[in-house]
Design a protein around this nucleic acid. Structure first.
Lengths: 250, 250
DNA sequence: CGTAGCTTTGATGTAGGTCAAGAAATGTGG
DNA sequence: CCACATTTCTTGACCTACATCAAAGCTACG
């Protein structure tokens, strides 16, 4: 009875929602997963979740709030690699490599479940399907990093911004936050700048430009797609590279 | 006896070398691995190994030769995401997602072992340690993509080039190709340009600059580190983020 | 209700792109 | 082994996208 409740509550979590899109998880998978999921922690803004160079880090699954993972270069500049939203795995690499190669810090108040290395190993040994699902989730994250890399390498500032905000929208919709019309977004222009490899000043100009073109409006913590189709066209956004038609594995 | 031979030959492969750095693989793991490894294929230059948008692709483990994975944007520009060298996994995402989100093409003649989705699943179910090792290898690749992303976002052309060539050197050394003094490298300046998000013209200028500074020489298919320490300093290259001191998992 | 962090805008500078064209390599068929 | 073709490398002249610097107007929250 208790197990069942746990399984049900797990099923509602953004993480399970995401994984279920890939493998049809059996009850036993869910049980193991709910163990992974047990130790809930809260991170206020300013308290790093993962710190570059530190050993024996845990991984986390975000339950609520936004975080960002980034690298600091000498000279003080930083590059944000990705933002983490509810349902995202975080710090998997720092567990597998035993020492973190990047930082993760909360952007808003974050609630997350800690995943220890031993638990992960145990879960893998017990339920290969879950292992496969985690591999899949990791690959999906990598796909996003790759798209981000293409942004930086071959798109100009406005296309890059448009593409990025569209992608973020798609990710948020997948876990039930945000609509096709837009979403609420706690990112400052400084954070955007560090993610897009631009200066904050230029981010501002680009946002103004997109607004004046009637494509999208980002103001007061909210992204509004003023003309979704035109925007998709402008950014040459691949509508469904994040989606797929039901579980790949039955 | 035959199994043993297979296991031995597997042990010598660049792939096993890489994985062994992470998990201590048991004989049973090696047997399963040698099954994964069975179907060897050859790809001449010009024959795509993986094609964007196509379904039911296989993954491969490179045995010899170089390949590159890239995305084409409308407008004909492309961004090379990564180069694959012997021992690298390739197309894992296109298997997990059932349809490829990128292209992979050979740069030289490539010999690779095909890995089917069903085989991968089977291997995971049989040997969780191997699953873990594959997850680790995938994460290591992601770490490199991340570093590449930082290159594009926050390093200028010369730092970027220096960092990239150092990293490539480290990867090659890990599988027994290339020395600390340098390595032979089949990449043209066009390929470098597409990887670095630069124009081929500027790649040329940057290489000249690095040569004139006495840092590195890239000519006639060979990269020579003229002053390794100075180069590491210049590119602020983290010497050992690719290395670690023996298997993390015993 | 003051101070610190955001946003907005203007003026000016520069890294790297584009265009063009010649020089080395490299390859190919006879 | 040589003519010819193709790719690759190299360099110069010019231009544009974005950075940097500076300063003012907002927001918000302690």
């Amino acid at each position: 009875m208790i197990d069942n409740t746990a399984a049900l509550s797990i099923l509602d979590s953004p993480f399970a929602k995401k994984l279920s899109a890939f493998v049809k998880l059996a009850p036993s998978d869910l049980t193991v997963m709910s163990d992974l999921y047990r130790r809930r922690r809260t991170f206020p803004i300013g308290m790093d979740m993962i710190h570059q160079g530190q050993a024996d880090q845990s991984a986390y699954v975000v339950a609520s709030g936004w975080a960002c993972s980034y690298k600091i270069l000498q000279g003080g500049t930083r590059q944000i690699v990705d933002f983490q939203i509810p349902g995202d795995f975080l710090g998997l690499r720092s567990v597998l490599f035993r020492t973190a190669d990047h930082n993760v810090e909360p952007i808003t108040l974050v609630q997350a479940s800690e995943v220890r290395q031993r638990d992960l190993l145990y879960a893998f040994a017990e339920t290969p399907r879950l292992a496969m699902a985690v591999l899949w989730a990791a690959s999906r994250d990598e796909a996003m990093v790759v798209e981000h890399l293409v942004d930086l390498g071959r798109r100009n500032a406005s296309e890059r911004m448009a593409h990025f905000l569209l992608e973020l929208g798609a990710r948020l919709r997948l876990v039930g936050l945000g609509e096709r019309s837009g979403y609420s977004c706690p990112l400052s222009q400084y954070l955007l700048a560090d993610a897009m490899g631009l200066s904050a000043v230029h981010v501002n100009r680009v946002l103004r430009e997109l607004r004046e073109e009637g494509l999208l409006t980002f103001q007061k913590g909210r992204v509004v797609f003023d003309d979704y189709d035109a925007l998709v066209e402008f950014a040459s956004f691949d509508r469904d590279y994040l989606d797929h038609e039901g579980p790949l594995l039955n």
